[in-house]
Structures are given as C-alpha cells and as structure tokens.
Amino acid sequence: MNVRLLEHIVGTSSSSAEVTPDGVQDIAASAMWDRGYDGSEVVVAVLDTGCNNHPDLAGQIKGGKNFTTDYGGDSDNFSDNHFHGTHVAGTIAAVRGNGIGVVGVAPDVKLLVLKVLSSDGSGGVYNIIEAIDYAIAWRGPQGQRVRVISMSLGTIWAPQDFHDAIKRADAADIAIVCASGNIGDGNSETNEVNYPAYYPECIAVGAYDMWGGVAYFSNSNNQIDICAPGVNVLSTSNSGGYVYSSGTSMAAPHVAGALALIANKLDKAFGRHATSRELYEELINRNTILLDVASTLQGYGALRFVGAATMPVKKVRISDVDFEAALSWLKDHGMFNTPAYWRNNAVVGKTIRGDYMREALIKIYIVQGLGAQVEK
C-alpha cells in the first residue's frame, strides 16, 4: 500500500538575493516576526522524502532518520533524493538574514527530518506509522519534543493502524498538519478524500492561489480545516537551488510554520507550553480571513496573520471609511479577489454575510492601511 506526494513542479529559480516568497508574504508572517515570534525553541517533524543540507537550512535540522530502503536502508542517511522534502522544509524553516535564497514562515524553527518516501515519491504506510511513533518518542538534547508533525503526502485508502498512529500523536499533544490532497474537481459538493488529512485529529490544509481562489486541484470535503498558499510556491530544492511547485503539499508547510509562530506567542502569554488544541484554536479563530467560498473547500478560511502587529493608539470608525477607497487599497496590496467582486458580494444590506464581509474588509484596511484601531 503506497502513499504518494501531493505536488507537481512548476519551474526553477536562481534566487541569488534573499527574497520572501509570495506565500510567506501573503500570510503576513512578518507581522509575527516583528513581535519576536520566529519559531525559536519549536521542533517540527517533517515526514517526507528527506532533506538536504541546503544553505538556507543551515543549522535548522536537529536530527532525522531514514525509514525507507533508499541508501541501502541506512537509517542515518535521511538526505533528499527527490526534491519534495527539501522544498517543504524551506517553506517551514528557511533562515532569514543570510542574504540569499528564500525565507521560511518560521525562520528560527528546528526540524526533525523523517524520510518516509523514496526517490520516486512513494512509500509504505507502515514506514509512516513507524516515523510517527519515532516523532512522538523523540527528545532533543535539552529535552525538546516535537510540537508539530507536517505530512505533505496521502493515500485514498489506509488501514486502521494508520489512524491509530495519528491518534497516538494527537494524544501526545502534537499538532498534526496534513495536505488535503490534489484530486479536487472544483465542485464543492463532491468529496475527495485523502488520508491522513481526512482523519479528524489532523489539520487538513487546502491550497489557494495568489488571486484569492481555491486551487482547482484542492480536495473538497467536510474535514478541511484551513487553506494556505499552494500555487507557484518558491522554496528550496535538494540540488541546492530553488524551485517553484504547486500542490496542497506546498500549502501544508505554511500552516506547520504558522503553528510554530503561534506556539511562540501562546507559550509566552501562558508561561507554559500551549497545548495542540490551543494552537489549533488560535490558528482558526485569530489568524484567518474567510473567502466567500464553500467551507468544504476552505474550512475556516485562508491562513493570514491579520492584525498580528501591535496596534497603535489611533482609532477610526468604520462609518468614516469609504468602502471604495478600502477596496482600492486592499487590491493594491494583494487582497483576495477584485474590487468588482466585493462590490457585488459584500454590499450593505444585501445579505448578513455581505454586511459582515464588508465590515471585515474595512477593518483590515483600517488596521493595515491606516495603521489604526477600529473605534468601538
């Protein structure tokens, strides 16, 4: 029984100067960095094709293990002989400030690299189960443990043993992030199911494009939790260079990195390690903005750290802001969809949802565009 990767390569890039990829910009990760939340002290286990010692991942890998027969079954050789695992790792953890390449969502997070897929991008379910249990038991030199598991892989059928392993990780207080799958047909009323994403214990991540729509290939079902950038995503390649790739595989690591930032925020606020449930609730309740599409495609919305930066004292009333001016500014700064779309779908008095969306858009404009709080 094979599990497969959930991506396809779009193109390559020779990124000589440091850039923040569009997806990392779009989720406003820098708003968290500005507050000192960069993923430090958080360990994310990446179950994938392995990871190479890319310059943008220098110092980010805490350890790893090979669960495949690649490299003669050498368990200590978890290097990436595909490209996928290194790409995922870069989106989560590429360092910031080295002057080259790309920046990840959580540029100071640490990775546990668990190679469960071979050079052809496939692997056995029981290899993954073994890796999940390894991640649960792993402890770092200072007693660190895995807070997040990231899996950009899937299968349309899985044994109960797979679900049992997921339940063990959930019981161990690990947030489990999974790509939802790439067999979507664009119809929100039909279900496309991939495991482990469909298990209720997992955070199932769909993909959206930079135009603000859910990607045509992204699965729809009642277990989707959130969507994140997944089209033309630039990240690290196992060759030492950079590659663009699309898929829910590319969306999931944005969420895994975001959870590391959220862990920093909540750990500081609580004076203890936040639970995986607390991380999840913060993810879906405070760091997303809803798209006007069915929940079976987008879950609770699109990942975005709206309002994460410290608010200034200045306050502005919603009634004082012109809707058209807000739409124009939002469009210029990469907001979802076009002004015409919002004029037609978020006008005052059209629907309760329309009123809500109009107010939400103006609030975002006030916070980000005017640099002010909304006056009560």
Rank of each mutant, 00 (worst) to 15 (best):
P107Q: 08
G72V: 12
A269M: 06
I174A: 08
L297E: 15
A256M: 05
V44G: 05
V313L: 10
L234N: 00
L117H: 02
A325M: 13
T351I: 07
Y341Q: 02
I183E: 04
S220N: 10
I129S: 06
I176A: 01
G97C: 04
K363E: 13
V313N: 04
S218W: 01
I203M: 07
A207C: 05
N287D: 09
A294W: 02
R35V: 06
F323W: 03
C178G: 03
H163S: 07
A172N: 02
I366N: 09
V95C: 06
I100E: 12
P200L: 05
G140M: 02
I284L: 14
G181Q: 10
T236C: 15
I224L: 15
F78L: 06
P159R: 14
Q25K: 12
V43H: 07
V44S: 04
Y199K: 00
I9M: 12
T248G: 11
L291R: 15
T288F: 02
R145E: 07
I366K: 13
I289Y: 13
Y208T: 05
G63F: 08
L261D: 09
K167D: 15
V105G: 12
A228V: 06
L234H: 07
I166C: 13
Y37A: 13
G184Y: 06
C178F: 03
S150A: 11
F162I: 00
G354D: 06
V3N: 05
G271Y: 04
P339F: 04
F83H: 08
G11R: 08
T155H: 01
A260T: 12
D185K: 12
G140Y: 00
G307A: 11
R4P: 00
T86N: 09
Q160P: 00
L266N: 10
C202T: 15
V24E: 02
S152R: 01
D322A: 14
N2W: 09
K110T: 06
R145N: 11
G121H: 12
A135M: 05
T296N: 12
G121Q: 11
M335I: 01
C178Y: 10
G213T: 11
S75L: 00
R304L: 09
S118G: 13
G212V: 03
S246W: 14
D70C: 07
N53A: 15
S239C: 01
S239L: 03
H54N: 13
A94S: 14
Q144Y: 05
N81W: 02
V367W: 09
A17T: 15
H254C: 12
A17S: 07
I366Y: 10
D161K: 03
W33C: 14
A94N: 02
G206C: 02
A325F: 06
F336S: 15
T288P: 01
R96S: 14
W211M: 06
I366T: 01
V231D: 10
A251G: 09
K110D: 10
D225W: 11
H87M: 03
C51I: 13
F83E: 07
E324I: 07
G23W: 03
L370C: 03
D56G: 11
N264T: 07
K363F: 09
